[in-house]
Design a binder for these strands. Structure first.
Length: 972
DNA sequence: GCAAGGACGTA
DNA sequence: GTACGTCCTTGCA
């Protein structure tokens, strides 16, 4: 007997890094590793002929689950990052490839592939056979034996080396300095940084081998540790004896895996064209199909592509209609959309999916475990699934889960009702509706699927579903998000699934209003009948999977892959966790303020009525305008675009000053107080979540043109700070008992980004020297020494600096500073003369936006302006200013996003516990245990300051200021 | 009950 | 002059 065991998982990972990426032509599915794997299996069968030919064969895979090693040592393989997303869909395909060659793929929950290999190896030896292990994993070297009955074979292609490299006792000796039977003793001492096996700190392979060759094994060495001459080595061994013993347990492969298949079941059977060719065709490996068909003396045309794996012929006309593809290519070329294969591919995917009709009646209601298990099996075959949750409300921190829908391909869908009540019309209702499986049973079945990093879960607005699912104990790994794909590609153009579906599929789907109604009679999803719910929810999952196919195909041709993969997708779970944490607010402070504001508002209101000589609604700009400019006949009134009198704060203040109108002052004061009361002190307490006693904002990751976040329900990005009253509100945001808040903010991030992008040496020098940037600007412009500079001069320079960032106009600057427009124009001219690069930068962005319709951040985020060539002068001017601002604001936004993505792992790495709670554009708020703030702050600042690297090396220093206190006002 | 407009809080 | 979200009034359904 000759048993050949292929270590499948290691090969896939090595192939992923070694081989160029390859995508299936028809749908862009990544298949590079599958192809590498298929070639490897084929070459093995070719190379191992005659004497070397195995009689038994299997491919062994790791099963993504914990193993006994996690129980021995919690940190085992803790450093291992999740597999790359491109690799994920390829896992099930490599199993399929194995079966296509008539070889059994073997994996077992709770066991690593290495353990299964060790057990089969032991059994084969006991049966008198020999074993070849196809792997280069050093952990398997312990199985090699001295008399050549167990050898390893490394087949990973390496330049300059033979294609097949046998690993026997000599090679093991080279690697570990000992015979194979002593490998685990050496590994126990030297550990393994990749798998996070600790070993004895400070002992490497060389020392370990020397010690083992002297003392024979670990136990004997430890028993004689006292005798070792070198003091530090002796001490390390004595101190870390237990660590070494644990390490040995970790590296020792189990030879007692309870195998499901006996050795005899692995007997080789010949390849069958009926299995192999349909697989190769489904993968669209055309050359391999021909070659293997010839080898097997089969007619490739006699077999169809495996329907389970092939791109589904979802459209009336398939992808392979040459005439149609050609016509399409011609049309696209004529439209100037280019003819790169990726562009054509994306267009084909879109057209095909768009042509697939919706059939709401086809969606399945899953009402029992057997039904769900069938769907889960389909999900594992597909490797990905679109998921949508239905809940009782829009607040994902409170809403109850009502059901979950799934779709694995355009046109299909299923709904698992979990908490529907009996009909809303039934006045005795609110019982549990019939035909639903137990929620715990359903979740138990779904839990491993959601956690499985080899199955991609596709959401639309993942953050919402995450907030619901984690509260039901589901962990979700490996996600894509159709809404974020859309945002990475098109910016905030589309906000809802309905808008996306309408635009891309020409089918908006059932509006939720149609099911729930609105106003007083509005129902929750739990009150919807299961049949209606299945149509609605199934459609949502179906739409999601369609959008995913269409949008994902556009990433590569539209240069948005990096933004999506490195900024958008990784940020979503970070934000989801911040939302779930919330922040504590002090109700008492707010209640006292509300009372205070109410009194002051009432007094101001009475005073205003007195001054106006009549009772009117102070909250009505219309009534106010009529009184000021009508009844009182004040001059200087201007009209808004709707013909109303304008009554903005700036205008009222001017009126108070110039015309000496006390009423104007009173109104401004009243507005200030009622604004704070209405928006903050009255409103915020209502947002306190009764379970957590904290306020949970929702961040929108897909709403802002420039790449910033926005915050809503409540908006925690506009908590007051500028006035005394405002800061009192801010002081109501507090650390939990025993905790502290840390606020870390970027200093002048946008001006620094401007200095970098526009390459303004004078600005860079100023930042390098740590100067007051506004004072420096003033000194340059007005020729005033920084020392003893009047505050008014600095204020003007500051307004100009901000103006530059906003795409300055003389009109705007004049307005801001209350100076004549001609004077503002002179300031701008002076600024351009002093900092000549600024004008170049501005002109450059103007040209870019007009020629290509978008500008970019330093990380390549595209910010689109479809109106760049508008026929309206005002609109054009607006786009010009926005296109000047967007790369600055957007690059700063990208920097803090990168910091947020890296923050949690960096804190873990540093051994600091800190919870990131809020982001306010250039500021991050954390909550830490009291007393740990001095450890946390440097780590936080370091991550933030280095966030652009290594993607971009900024040519200005980035500075972060961090402070800790019990409340947000004092921490800021 | 809903949308638009004005005003104003933040970076 | 950039980017947001929320509150309130108004006007129409």
């Amino acid at each position: 007997m000759h048993l050949l065991l292929v270590d499948g998982s290691t090969y896939i990972f090595r192939a992923y890094h070694a081989l160029p990426p390859l995508n299936r032509k028809s749908d862009g599915l990544p298949v590079g590793c599958v192809q590498g794997f298929t070639n490897m299996i084929f070459k093995l069968t070719e190379d191992l002929k005659g004497e070397d030919a195995p009689t038994h064969m299997a491919v062994i895979f790791d099963h993504s689950a914990r193993t006994f090693r996690d129980d021995i040592y919690a940190d085992y393989k803790a450093q291992r990052p999740p597999p790359p997303e491109e690799l994920v869909p390829q896992f099930p395909l490599t199993r399929a490839a194995t079966r296509a060659f008539s070889i059994l793929p073997i994996e077992m929950e709770g066991w690593e592939a290495d353990d299964i290999i060790a057990t089969y190896t032991t059994q084969a030896l006991a049966a008198g056979g020999k074993v070849t292990i196809v792997s280069s994993d050093k952990d398997l070297m312990q199985l090699v034996d001295l008399d050549g009955r167990v050898r390893m074979l490394d087949t990973i292609p390496r330049p300059g080396q033979p294609p097949l490299r046998w690993i026997g006792p000599d090679e093991v000796m080279t690697k570990f300095g000992v015979t194979p039977d002593k490998v685990i003793e050496v590994q126990a001492l030297c550990g393994d940084s990749v798998d996070n096996v600790p070993g004895v700190p400070g002992i490497g392979v060389k020392t370990a081998a020397e010690l083992i060759n002297t003392y024979g094994d670990l136990e004997n060495l430890l028993a004689h540790a006292e005798e070792i001459k070198q003091p530090s080595r002796r001490q390390k061994l004595i101190e870390n004896a237990d660590l070494a013993r644990i390490s040995k347990q970790l590296v020792t492969l189990s030879k007692e895996v309870p195998l499901e298949l006996e050795l005899s079941a692995l007997a080789r059977v010949p390849m069958e064209p009926g299995k192999l060719i349909p697989f190769l065709k489904a993968m669209e490996f055309n050359a391999a199909t021909k070659r293997l068909a010839t080898l097997l003396e089969a007619d490739p045309d006699a077999y169809e592509a495996d329907p389970e794996l092939a791109v589904k012929p979802v459209a009336p006309v398939g992808f392979d209609n040459a005439a149609r593809a050609e016509a399409r290519a011609a049309r696209l070329a004529a439209e100037g959309r280019g003819d790169s294969p990726a562009v054509l591919h994306a267009a084909e995917v879109h057209e095909t999916i768009k042509a697939t009709p919706f059939d709401l009646a086809a969606y399945e209601t899953i009402s029992d475990a057997a039904g769900l298990e069938r769907w889960i099996a389909a999900i594992y075959r597909q490797g990905y699934v679109a998921v949508d949750t239905e809940t009782t409300g829009l607040d994902n921190q409170q809403a109850d889960l009502v059901g979950i829908s799934l779709s694995t391909q355009p046109g299909n869908g299923a709904y698992i009702p979990l908490a529907h009540a009996t009909g809303a019309d039934d006045m005795f209702g609110n019982g549990r509706a019939e035909g639903q499986m137990d929620i715990e049973v359903a979740l138990a079945l779904l839990r491993p699927v959601f956690a499985d990093r080899s199955i991609l879960k596709i959401f639309h607005n993942y953050k919402f579903d995450h907030g619901v699912l984690v509260r039901y104990g589901l962990e979700v790994n490996a996600i894509d998000d159709a809404l974020l794909l859309s945002y990475a590609l098109d910016g905030p153009q589309f906000n809802t699934m309905g808008e996306l579906a309408d635009h891309w599929l020409g089918h908006a789907g059932i509006p939720i209003k149609e099911l729930l109604g609105s106003g007083k009679t509005q129902r929750t999803f739990a009150q919807i009948g299961i049949a209606d719910a299945t149509r609605y929810a199934g459609e949502d999952a179906d739409i999601t999977v369609r959008l995913w196919h269409i949008l994902k195909a556009r990433l590569v041709p539209e240069n948005s892959t990096a933004i999506y993969e490195t900024l958008e997708r990784p940020l979503a779970p970070v934000l989801a966790r911040m939302e779930a944490r919330g922040i504590s607010i002090d109700r008492q402070i707010l209640a006292r303020l509300s009372g205070d504001f109410a009194q002051r508002a009432a007094a101001l209101e009475a005073e205003a009525h007195e001054l106006a000589g009549e009772v009117f609604n102070l909250g009505s700009p219309k009534q106010l305008g009529d009184i000021l400019f009508g009844k009182l006949g004040l001059p200087g009134g201007s009209k808004t675009k709707t013909g109303q009198w304008a009554t903005g704060a700036g205008l009222l203040e001017e009126l108070a000053e110039r015309e000496n109108v006390p009423l104007a002052k009173v109104i401004v004061a009243w507005r200030g107080v009622t604004k704070l009361k209405g928006t903050y002190t009255d409103a915020l307490p209502a947002y306190i979540n009764s379970r957590s006693n904290r306020v949970h904002t929702t961040y929108s990751q897909h709403s802002v043109l420039t790449g910033r976040l926005s915050s809503n329900d409540p908006n925690l990005q506009n908590i007051p700070i500028r006035t005394e009253d405002g800061r009192k509100i801010r002081s109501a945001f507090v650390a939990a008992p025993g905790k502290m808040l840390i606020s870390a903010d970027y200093s002048q991030i946008e001006l620094r980004v401007l200095a970098h992008i526009a390459d303004i040496q004078a600005l860079k020098d100023a930042f390098e020297e740590g100067l007051d940037i506004h004072a420096m600007t003033a000194s340059e412009m007005f020729k005033v020494p920084i020392e003893g500079m009047p505050s008014e001069v600095r204020r003007r320079a500051k307004a100009i600096n901000f103006g530059i960032i906003y795409g300055i106009s003389a009109f705007g600057l004049a307005n801001q500073l209350g100076i004549p427009r001609s004077e503002a124009g002179d300031y701008i001219d002076t600024y351009f003369k002093r900092f000549p690069g600024i004008k170049d930068y501005m002109d450059h962005q103007r040209r870019l936006v007009k020629s290509q319709g978008y500008v970019t951040t330093i990380f390549g985020r595209r910010i689109r302006f479809p109106n760049a060539n508008s026929s309206h002068q005002a609109e054009r001017a607006f786009v010009e200013r926005a296109s000047i601002n967007a790369p600055i604001q957007g690059s700063a936004a990208d920097i803090i996003r990168r910091a947020m993505i890296r923050m949690e792992p960096a804190l873990v790495q540093a051994g600091v516990h800190a919870d990131m709670l809020l982001q306010v554009h250039d500021e991050l708020i954390f909550e830490v245990d009291e007393g740990t703030e001095d450890e946390a702050m440097p780590v936080i600042a370091q991550v933030m300051e280095g966030a652009a690297e290594p993607a971009v090396r900024l040519t200005v220093p980035i500075q972060v200021d961090a402070h800790a206190a019990k409340n947000w006002d004092e921490a800021h």
